[in-house]
């Protein structure tokens, strides 16, 4: 089983990395790039588990909230890939 977690800076949080990437895109010939946000993606491969699916998803959500992202500055998206 594979899970993908995408963590992005909240819209209201300054993202200087995104701004730097945007500026470089301008230099590299993409003047239309007006905003870039830089986040991170984590892929988790899981052993088959005896836990039922809702319990597993609840656990994953809890870990996304308490560990993989910081809710003060980031939002996360949890996706079961296969």
């Amino acid at each position: 089983m594979k899970v993908r977690v995408t963590v992005m800076p909240k819209a209201a949080v300054l993202d200087p990395q995104g701004v730097a990437i945007r500026n470089t895109l301008h230099h590299l010939g993409l003047p239309g790039a007006h905003a870039v946000r830089a986040g991170k993606v984590m892929e988790i491969e899981l052993d088959p588990t005896s836990e039922d699916r809702p319990a597993l998803e609840a656990k994953l959500r809890e870990l996304c909230r308490d560990f993989l992202s910081n809710p003060v500055i980031e939002d996360f998206q949890l996706e079961i890939v296969d």
Partner: peptide
């Protein structure tokens, strides 16, 4: 301490990078 929730807020990358 911020990550642990003992203090509010968070520290992010310097504006200047």
């Amino acid at each position: 301490l911020c990550e642990a929730g003992l203090l509010p807020g968070a520290l992010i990358r310097n504006r200047s990078l």
